[in-house]
Lab assay of single mutants.
Amino acid sequence: GATAVSEWTEYKTADGKTYYYNNRTLESTWEKPQELK
C-alpha cells in the first residue's frame, strides 16, 4: 500500500545538523519522524 515516508524530506543545516520537513503538512522537526523509524 501507500506509505507516508515520501512526505518527509531530510535536510542538513549549514552547520551540519539534520532536520526533517513534511511536504504535506509543511511541518519541520529535529526529531526523526515516526514514519521514518
Results as ranks from 00 to 15, higher is better:
20 Y>E: 01
37 K>V: 14
21 Y>T: 09
10 E>A: 09
6 S>I: 09
9 T>K: 10
31 E>L: 09
32 K>W: 04
27 E>V: 08
23 N>P: 06
32 K>L: 10
16 G>Y: 01
33 P>I: 02
26 L>S: 14
7 E>A: 07
37 K>C: 06
34 Q>T: 11
14 A>T: 10
31 E>I: 11
1 G>V: 14
24 R>S: 14
27 E>P: 00
22 N>M: 00
25 T>F: 02
37 K>T: 13
18 T>D: 04
6 S>G: 11
10 E>D: 03
29 T>L: 07
6 S>H: 10
3 T>S: 12
9 T>D: 05
12 K>I: 13
37 K>P: 08
35 E>L: 05
3 T>H: 12
17 K>H: 09
25 T>R: 01
20 Y>H: 02
2 A>D: 12
17 K>Y: 08
7 E>D: 12
1 G>M: 13
14 A>R: 08
9 T>A: 10
9 T>S: 12
31 E>R: 05
22 N>F: 00
20 Y>I: 00
15 D>L: 04
7 E>T: 06
13 T>D: 13
16 G>I: 00
29 T>Y: 07
4 A>T: 14
23 N>R: 07
16 G>H: 02
35 E>N: 08
29 T>F: 08
36 L>H: 10
25 T>V: 01
20 Y>R: 00
14 A>H: 11
10 E>W: 05
5 V>W: 13
2 A>I: 13
2 A>S: 14
6 S>L: 08
22 N>S: 03
28 S>V: 15
4 A>S: 14
16 G>E: 02
12 K>N: 06
6 S>N: 11
5 V>S: 11
21 Y>L: 11
15 D>R: 03
23 N>T: 09
31 E>Q: 08
8 W>K: 00
8 W>F: 02
6 S>V: 10
35 E>W: 06
35 E>H: 06
13 T>E: 03
31 E>A: 07
6 S>Q: 11
27 E>D: 04
27 E>R: 04
24 R>P: 03
28 S>L: 15
33 P>R: 01
15 D>G: 07
32 K>S: 04
18 T>L: 09
9 T>M: 12
16 G>F: 02
10 E>V: 11
21 Y>H: 09
14 A>V: 11
14 A>Y: 04
1 G>A: 14
6 S>Y: 09
21 Y>E: 07
12 K>A: 06
14 A>I: 11
9 T>Q: 12
36 L>T: 05
29 T>A: 06
7 E>M: 05
2 A>Q: 14
5 V>G: 12
1 G>N: 13
8 W>V: 01
36 L>W: 09
20 Y>A: 00
27 E>N: 04
20 Y>T: 00
12 K>E: 07
3 T>V: 11
34 Q>I: 11
18 T>V: 10
33 P>Y: 03
6 S>R: 08
24 R>E: 13
27 E>H: 04
35 E>P: 07
15 D>K: 04
8 W>E: 00
33 P>A: 01
27 E>A: 05
34 Q>N: 13
4 A>R: 02
1 G>Q: 13
29 T>R: 09
29 T>H: 07
5 V>D: 14
4 A>L: 12
18 T>Y: 09
28 S>M: 15
24 R>T: 15
13 T>I: 03
2 A>P: 11
12 K>D: 03
31 E>S: 06
29 T>C: 03
6 S>P: 11
33 P>D: 01
7 E>V: 07
2 A>W: 12
10 E>K: 04
36 L>P: 04
17 K>R: 14
31 E>D: 11
8 W>N: 00
3 T>D: 14
